[in-house]
């Protein structure tokens, strides 16, 4: 397939179709509505399911229903919608069904604004709903990576029967870049044996997150934890740039990760030994590798578009072995490379 100029929101929407999306349920919210609009047309053209739900609560519970049938299903939203969806996300996690949610983060709290932000890190990584669980959280930094992670998200969701969140931001959703879409995958995909499909010639399948006995619910939770442990063992992803001789390590994901790449290149030109560590999975977090790097670098600087959220995981990862500084902008302000470079020079 040739490269084309694609907008982030439309790119992940089209990629989802090509990776076998069978049912999309969404609710309009800026800055991701282009995805919903793209799917409103394309899903109908492909004779697949598209519904504009009455709310994000409706959307995520439609996703939950379709997920119980074992099809590739997803929704996309932004912070205020993600907050509403958390009820459904918890049920999805509590019943071991696969689903994908894209969160194009915007400034908060409250109505906030519609500018790019990374202030939903805690929400997605630490508290995506009531109860003990984590979604698998992927963090793309370019339109191409959004496309690639869309396929990865479906594959991982199915492999582990888990919830996968793609943590984008308004900038990634709105930007246009040259990128390549995957070819159309065979469709419809076969449905898994565990799904609900009508108890024809077999015992009924029951999908529930309920177990009224403490011992039973603890057993269920141990099952979730065993699954999460498998994910932690196999699915940690990150990218490193110029870490071999780095004395100062920038740690940033998504849009901020891209900006930090520019910071690192400029710093190198100016003779500073700066490297960049860009987590591609926010959960599981690449803690072990960061811990290794803490034995080598003098100092770390975490940069985020929030008041300091991922930085807590960086600090946990390095266990106090090196100082971890933080630079962040809030409210939808995207930090400039020069601002972060000025912070680097203070270290």
């Amino acid at each position: 397939m040739a490269k084309e100029l694609l907008k982030g929101n439309e790119a992940f929407a089209e990629a989802a179709i090509r990776y076998g999306l069978e049912a999309y349920f969404g609710y309009p919210i800026t800055p991701q509505s282009e995805a919903l609009e793209h799917l409103a047309r394309r899903m109908v053209e492909e004779d697949r399911v598209f519904i504009q739900a009455e709310s994000e609560l409706g959307a995520i519970n439609m996703v939950y229903g379709a997920a119980c049938c074992g099809v590739r299903t997803m929704t996309s939203t932004s912070g205020p919608g993600f907050s509403l969806m958390e009820e459904g996300l918890s049920y999805i996690a509590g019943s071991d069904v696969p689903a994908v949610v894209v969160n194009m983060q915007r400034g908060g709290p409250g109505l906030g604004n519609i500018q790019p932000s990374q202030s939903d890190y805690f929400l997605m990584v630490k508290s995506a709903g009531h109860g003990d669980f984590h979604p698998l959280v992927l963090a793309p930094a370019s339109v191409q990576e959004i496309i690639d992670m869309m396929g990865l998200a479906f594959d991982l969701a199915e492999k582990y029967r888990t919830l996968v969140v793609i943590a984008g931001d308004g900038s990634l959703g709105q930007m246009m870049e040259s990128a390549e879409l995957p070819p159309m995958q065979p469709f419809p995909r076969p449905r898994p044996e565990w799904a609900v499909s009508g108890a024809k010639g077999r015992d009924p399948h029951i999908i529930t997150s309920l177990d009224l006995s403490p011992e039973g619910l603890e057993r269920m939770n141990l099952g979730f934890q065993a699954k999460l442990a498998e994910i932690q063992k196999h699915e940690i992803r990150w990218k490193e740039y110029e870490t071999a001789d780095a004395e100062i390590l920038l740690v940033a994901y998504g849009t901020t990760g891209r900006i930090c790449l520019s910071v690192m290149r400029e710093a190198r030109k100016q003779g500073l030994k700066v490297g960049l560590f860009r987590p591609q999975t926010l959960w599981p977090f690449p803690s072990a590798r960061l811990n290794e790097l803490s034995g080598q670098v003098r100092v770390m600087l975490a940069a985020e578009m929030n008041a300091g959220q991922m930085v807590e995981d960086v600090r946990l990862a390095v266990s106090g072995k090196v100082p971890v500084h933080f630079y962040g902008r809030m409210g939808g302000v995207v930090p400039l490379a020069d601002e972060i470079l000025a912070e680097v020079k203070k270290l």
Partner: peptide
């Protein structure tokens, strides 16, 4: 019969 269990009201 096959069954799923929904969140309250959903």
């Amino acid at each position: 019969a096959d069954f799923v269990e929904a969140p309250h009201g959903r």
